[in-house]
Write a protein that binds this DNA or RNA. Structure first.
Lengths: 232, 232
DNA sequence: GTGCCTTTGTGAAGCAATGCACAAAGTCGA
DNA sequence: TCGACTTTGTGCATTGCTTCACAAAGGCAC
């Protein structure tokens, strides 16, 4: 029997919907700050950058939290989405690799405000170990397993160079972590039951370049051949 | 008449395929470095983390570049994918906002090696202007329009705080830029014909938290109610 | 109450992406 | 030259996502 990786659809919530919930949450938080009490699907959709039918269908997967003729109660919806995403609890996150990117992540305000607590910063470079960043002291990567178990870390962010990523990945999985956010430009091999999400900064630029090229050429490009002199 | 935004499908390449091409390219570059001459769809798919049928279908959108019974020539495929993505030309990129994230991006090696040349670093903070990062001197944000036009910048990366992002966005669009990579946690409003891709670091963590919560609960969670004391 | 107006929630249709399975095409050894 | 073997390229069925369009639900004015 193959054990399926738990997916969104375990309770019928499509992955595409889950990926948009944080967007709605952000829009709602903005509205809450501005004192808005209720919001229609039309307005919320506009603020989140999607169309209103999609928004309503997404929300309908969570339950029926709107009032016909009125809209959604902002505070209530914030609570329901937060709960669904698991943001009503506190998540301990460790960041491995404290280069520029690791520092940027450690200082990023968007984490703390959403229930993510940076519980450890680790790096293999002795020159970095001991630095104080965002109120934490950088620890040596040797401490990885002990930091994870002692501080209840359940999500690890890998911001190391590509060459170190798989080794770090193996170690954190051995230590019991099953959720990994990977910024290193490699495909991590993981066993079933472990979730990896990846962010590759250069992939996004490449996709933009593709579209930019299309625009510049004003249409289908000529079939340019393999340049002379290159031997297959 | 509504002018359609140029999409991948203008030449029949689905967006989902475009999004995977950079993945294949990275895997192929790794193989080329290791001296591999040809690769089967099976092996390449494994290295890229997709299944082989999908890989073959993706590549078939570019043309028929494989040899039956043998596989794909690594160098040739690298060239074809690079050309399709527009990486055989040089793209001048400007990064606006030189905080930790902007610095991380400026120092990220993955850009230069793929035809992306950082042509300018800009920031509004006088304390940062003049700093030397990755071989470039940070310029004042006032220079934005002149940097874009004088250096032929066609892609702009926004790594500013959320509050500044829309203003920067408007200015770069006015200056003729139509491709934007946005790291600020806001939905940018842009006219038709402008491509925006966004990367939100906290959204990825929220999606992980959702799945982690599901795993921890071992199944559908109880319908927890709106806590007492909170008034709708 | 009653009836009008607004806005949700959702079937159903349409569209895009995925995965299967195999014929066609090519290599290579004998 | 031939036949066995490998691997591509793709038609087709399936799945998943999006969008439409409207009935049902609720608020509000009178």
């Amino acid at each position: 029997m193959i054990r399926r990786i738990p997916q969104a659809r375990d309770r019928g919530i499509p992955d595409a919907t889950v990926a948009r919930l944080p967007l709605y949450l952000r829009a709602l938080n903005g509205m809450a700050e501005r004192g808005t009490a209720t919001v229609s699907s039309e307005d919320l959709a506009l603020a989140a950058g999607v169309n209103s039918a999609k928004l309503r269908k997404d929300l309908s997967h969570l339950g029926s939290y709107g009032t016909r003729g009125v809209g959604y109660d902002v505070q209530y919806l914030i609570y329901q989405i937060s709960r669904e995403l698991g943001l009503t609890q506190d998540w301990a996150v460790a960041i491995v690799g404290v280069g520029n990117l690791g520092r940027a992540l450690a200082n990023y305000g968007g984490f703390a405000s959403r229930g993510f607590r940076i519980a450890g910063l680790l790096d293999a470079d002795p020159h970095v170990v001991g630095d104080r960043i965002a109120g934490l002291v950088v620890e040596h990567a040797d401490e990885l397993e002990s930091v994870i178990s002692k501080r209840g870390v359940s999500i690890v962010v890998i911001a190391t160079p590509a060459t170190a990523a798989q080794r770090v990945c193996d170690r954190v999985i051995a230590a019991g972590v099953t959720s990994i956010l990977n910024f290193a430009p490699v495909v991590l091999a993981v066993p079933d039951g472990v979730d990896v999400r990846k962010v590759d900064l250069s992939i996004e630029l490449q996709i933009l370049a593709f579209h930019e090229q299309r625009k510049a050429n004003g249409g289908p490009i000529m079939a340019e051949e393999w340049p002379d002199g290159v031997v297959m």
